[in-house]
Design a binder for these strands. Structure first.
Lengths: 339, 339
DNA sequence: CGGAAAATAGTTATCGATAACATATTGAGG
DNA sequence: CCTCAATATGTTATCGATAACTATTTTCCG
């Protein structure tokens, strides 16, 4: 039942059908103040009758506004990132702004290609998850006319605005907790690759925090290339027991990895937390449900999204701020029975 | 370092800088055949020098092509849907087509609002996850000039094209397996609400399959409104034990729910599969890792995405098919130790 | 009732790239 | 040296909505 007839209905069609001008129709659609209520009603009803669909491409060109925001994420399959995207999307919906989504697959080169594509579309703002970019990406974006927001990290040299938290400091909270409860032989699982900057920061935070307690952070277990998930957690636990059999506390780069390790402990008869304390990162739903539930860091992934949405809307409506905005969120330590 | 200078660089600026026409610049950018290689090189290098960024809004208007596809999902946080989106995105990237994403939050009214918005943007195609729509949505889409594809279901009255699988038939496979292994007092957890049509179909499939074995499907346990996850699985198991304590096999509306139930069994000392067999749906990563790993149905969520991408590309390039396309995928039964 | 302000609507030009058509240049063959 | 085709480039009009400006009608006051 596709519209077979050639010409599509446009504003001027409605206008001539009613003997008014196209401009009046345009005004009616935008709810412009200076238009007679009855005229407006006639226009809207005629539009409905003709099956008119507003064409935003024309409007986009004329107004130099597109009404969407470009968003890159390493992987939309990660529940943390998708929570951010969801809240971002929900927040932007208040102003009818939509999201143009791109997956970088944890690859800065791919990110560069995607951003080059996205820029051509004139998004109202560009939101980047992560702070690791190629030089060319940085160059492109620093010249871009729209706001750029890096989220999920606290870059030392931000391109524009920032909504993030400190991965290092968050891990410190976990280490402190483990040490406080008597564990000394701590290991960290994951985050060894340059390809996963957030994981690497968490691992760096681990090393740093251990040093703060006068402990050596020698128990660093690799988990492979990002994205690492439950599968890598399970195999990683085996590797840990092989390399550092005396470990009494394990901090994992994410709850998914921690759960994989926990499940493997189950299979091997390792008691958690008696034999081994396990902590995750990210406060995924699974950490709340599994047995024992996981001690973790809640990074407030959804909040990052909603705060970003608020920041975008603020930037679009108000006057540009003198200095780039930087919003630092405080993750929370969540203590559960796995430690 | 924002571009402070007023005017943005456009094709005609490059053109006049080189003493050629804007048309030639346009041709150079699109790699048009009839253009001198040296001219083209000069244009591209001058564009680089001036920091030119192609403006697709103008191109969109003139060519009546936008280069993006609108996609609605109930929730991007669901790993199954996000896998579909990822593969869809990946597949469309081959032709530089991007995704405009919208979350319906499992609400047909919200879907209607979103689709009305998305339509104004002239997407090249519209992909809807799910087949439950309001009458107005159906009306809007059946008049829409671009291809419409419903995925993840096999609607009786499709709007346009379809890439999906049968939820009912898939659950039948699980029931058959349970019955074959001697279980008779089977329960189904979830899918009772009209708000979650896929869950409802799975539950209907359960009832149907039980009837096929001459068994009564009286053990239907509600899990609450979509989205249901691990939390509802855990509470649902308790409810099941209260309502139907003699149950010996539990089929859950998803792996997440099944895992929640499994974790609760752990806590209550219920042995799986000895006391209770548990099966999930969707083949999420968690089902492979948890202990015991879950019997489930692999619906090939990623494949749905890549097949949809192929279908979209085919529809955009070739001549429109005489009849709407309908691609039916076959989910696989995956047997693991939880049953 | 006169006149100014407010309310309402119309005209024209424009956003930037590109389709469609027109023109200029080159080169090969006779 | 000329013709015709192939190659390379230029001109003009256009996609559809809307900003900026102008014109008309109403309203409301002294």
């Amino acid at each position: 039942m596709k519209k077979a007839q050639g010409g599509k209905v446009k504003m001027s069609d409605i206008a001539s059908a009613l003997g008014v001008s196209a401009m009046t129709v345009s005004r009616a659609f935008r709810g412009d103040a200076g238009i007679n209520a009855r005229t407006r009603a006639r226009i809207l009803s005629k539009a409905e009758e003709l099956g008119y669909v507003f064409d935003s491409t024309a409007s986009n060109l004329r107004q130099n506004r597109t009404g969407f925001v470009a968003v890159t994420v390493p992987s939309i399959e990660n529940a943390n990132f998708s929570a951010t995207v969801r809240e971002l999307s929900r927040g932007l919906l208040k102003r009818n702004i939509q999201i143009l989504l791109a997956n970088t697959e944890y690859d800065p080169e791919e990110e560069e290609r995607l951003i080059a594509q996205l820029l051509r579309r004139n998004p109202e703002a560009i939101v980047l998850t992560g702070a690791q970019h190629t030089a060319k990406t940085r160059a492109l974006l620093s010249k871009a006319p729209m706001p750029v927001i890096e989220i999920w990290d606290l870059p030392a040299k931000p391109i524009g605005h920032v909504v993030g938290f400190s991965n290092e400091a968050s891990v410190r909270g976990l280490v402190d907790h483990m040490v406080r409860s008597g564990r000394r032989r701590l290991a960290f699982l994951g985050g060894e690759t340059a390809h996963d900057p957030r994981g690497a920061q968490r691992r760096a935070g681990f090393v740093e925090a251990m040093a703060g307690h006068g402990l050596e952070a020698t128990r660093l277990v690799p988990a492979g290339a990002a994205p690492v998930g439950m599968t890598e957690g399970a195999s990683g636990l085996e590797l840990m027991r092989e390399l550092f059999p005396d470990t009494d506390g394990l901090i994992c780069v994410s709850d998914l990895v921690a759960f994989g390790a926990l499940a493997q402990c189950h299979r091997l008869g390792v008691k958690v937390p008696e034999d081994l304390a396990i902590a995750g990162f990210g406060n995924y739903e699974i950490g709340r449900i599994c047995e024992p539930p996981l001690t973790t860091i809640d990074v407030h992934a959804g909040l990052i999204g909603s705060r970003t949405a608020d920041m975008v809307l603020g930037l679009l409506e108000g006057t540009p701020p003198a200095a780039p905005l930087r919003q630092v969120l405080q993750p929370d330590l969540i203590l559960r029975r796995s430690t």
